[in-house]
Write a protein that binds this DNA or RNA. Structure first.
Lengths: 206, 206
DNA sequence: ATCATATGTTATCGTTATTAACATCACGCC
DNA sequence: GGCGTGATGTTAATAACGATAACATATGAT
C-alpha cells in the first residue's frame, strides 16, 4: 500500500513529483497546483502520478511533509545555536517561525489548509507533533532553569508560546497585522508576547 | 458595475445565491463548493450567477462578508452585555471569537483562506478592519480605566489580544491544540493569555 | 526464458469555471 | 398602448481538471 522508497528504472518518480509540486507551489504564490502541471514538470504523463499517490490530496500531503521537515530543520538549527533554558532561545524559535511563514509563504499556508481525508490529516498531525517537540524541549529547559521547584507544565507553556507565534504568523500571512497601525512589527510583537507569557509563568505561584 | 441591491422579477438572485453558497459551505464542512451546486440550490442555471458575480471568487468574497457580519454581531452583543474597561469584557470577546471558530467552523476557515485577487482582498481587509474595531474600543476603554496617564497604544494592545485569540482559534480549528496534551482547554488558555498580556501592559513603565 | 508485478502510456469520463449566443421580462418613453 | 432597451435568464460550447480503465513495457525473481 506504501511505495515510499520504491525506485523505478525511469527514475524516482515519487520524490521527483513531490519536488516538482513543491517548486510549482513555491513559484505560483498559492497552492492551487494541477496534477497535469506537476506531471509535465516531472516529464511524465498525468496518470503516472496515480501509481504513487492515491489522489491529488495525497500528493499535497507529501509536500506538506516536506515543508514541515524544512521548518523543523530551521527550528533545530536555532536550538543548536542558542543556550538551552534561555528566554532568547524561545524568542528566536518564534522569530524563526515568523520568518518561515514569510519567506516560505506558500508552504506555510499549505501547512494549515484544512483539506484531506481523516487518515491523511491524522498523519499530518503526528508529523507536526514531532516537529514541535523542539519547542517543548525549549520550554522544559526554561522552566527547569527558572522555576525548578514548581509544577508548571512545559507542554502547556509551549502551547501558549506556539499559539502567540502562530497567531502573529497567520495574521501577518493574511496581511492583517498592520491594518490598524502600519508601524506594528511582527517580530517586536512576538518578542513582547513571549516575554509577557514567560513573566506571567514565573510570577504565577501555586 | 455593482448590482448590489438590484432585484429581479424572478427573485433576488444575488442574495439567494450568497445564502445558498453559505448553506452549502455550512453543511459540507469545507468551502469547496461549485458554481453548479450553488446554482442548482438557487434553482437557476450556472451561467445566471455570472450576471451577479464576476467569478466564483467574488461569490466566495460575498459569503465571507456575510460570515464577517455574523462574527461582528456576536462581538457587538458581547460588548453590549459587559462593562467597558473591564478585563472580563476583553476575555469574553476572545471566548466569543473561539466559539465562532468552533460552531461556524467552515465560515471561520473561509475567512482566512488566502485566495481572490488584489481588489477582492483589499475589500475584505477593510471589512475585517471595521469588524475588529469592537476590540480596539475595548482595549481603549481598558487602558483608559487602568492606565489613564500612560501612552500605551490601544491599537497595539488590541493587536496583541487579537493575535493570541487568533492563534488559539486557528490551532484549535486545525485540531492541533491538544496534540501535545489532551487536557489543554482552548478557553482557559485564552483567559490565561489575555491576563498575561494585560498584566504585562500594566506593569510596563515608560 | 518466463512470468508476475511495478510502473508507465493513451484514451476516456464526468465535473468544473467561464464565455458566447440567444431568449425573455420589466420598465421608461412616445 | 406599443416599443425598444437593458437587465436578467437560458442553452450550448470550450478548455482544464481529477480520476480511471485498458493497454504497454521494463524489472527482477524463479
Amino acid at each position: 500500500m506504501n511505495e515510499i522508497t520504491t525506485p523505478y528504472h525511469h527514475g524516482d518518480l515519487r520524490n521527483t513529483a513531490i519536488i516538482a509540486a513543491a517548486e510549482l507551489i513555491d513559484q505560483s504564490g498559492n497552492y492551487e497546483i494541477s496534477i497535469a502541471n506537476v506531471a509535465k514538470r516531472a516529464g511524465v504523463s498525468s496518470a503516472a502520478l496515480y501509481r504513487h499517490f492515491e489522489d491529488k490530496e495525497a500528493l499535497l500531503t507529501a509536500v506538506r511533509e516536506l515543508a514541515l521537515i524544512g521548518l523543523m530543520q530551521r527550528l533545530e538549527a536555532i536550538a543548536a545555536q542558542h543556550e538551552q533554558g534561555t528566554q532568547l532561545l524561545i524568542e528566536e524559535l518564534g522569530i524563526c517561525y515568523l520568518q518561515f511563514a514569510e519567506d516560505k509563504r506558500s508552504f506555510f499556508g499549505l501547512l494549515w489548509e484544512d483539506r484531506g481525508n481523516m487518515e491523511q490529516r491524522r498523519l499530518e498531525a503526528q508529523a507536526k507533533r514531532t516537529g514541535f517537540e523542539v519547542l517543548i524541549k525549549a520550554a522544559e529547559s526554561y522552566l527547569c532553569a527558572h522555576k525548578p521547584d514548581n509544577d508548571v507544565s512545559p507542554v502547556r507553556l509551549a502551547t501558549q508560546l506556539w499559539s502567540i507565534a502562530h497567531g502573529i504568523a497567520t495574521l501577518e500571512h493574511n496581511r492583517m497585522l498592520d491594518i490598524f497601525d502600519e508601524t506594528i512589527n511582527a517580530e517586536q510583537l512576538l518578542r513582547d508576547g513571549t516575554q509577557a507569557f514567560l513573566r506571567n509563568t514565573l510570577d504565577s505561584s501555586s
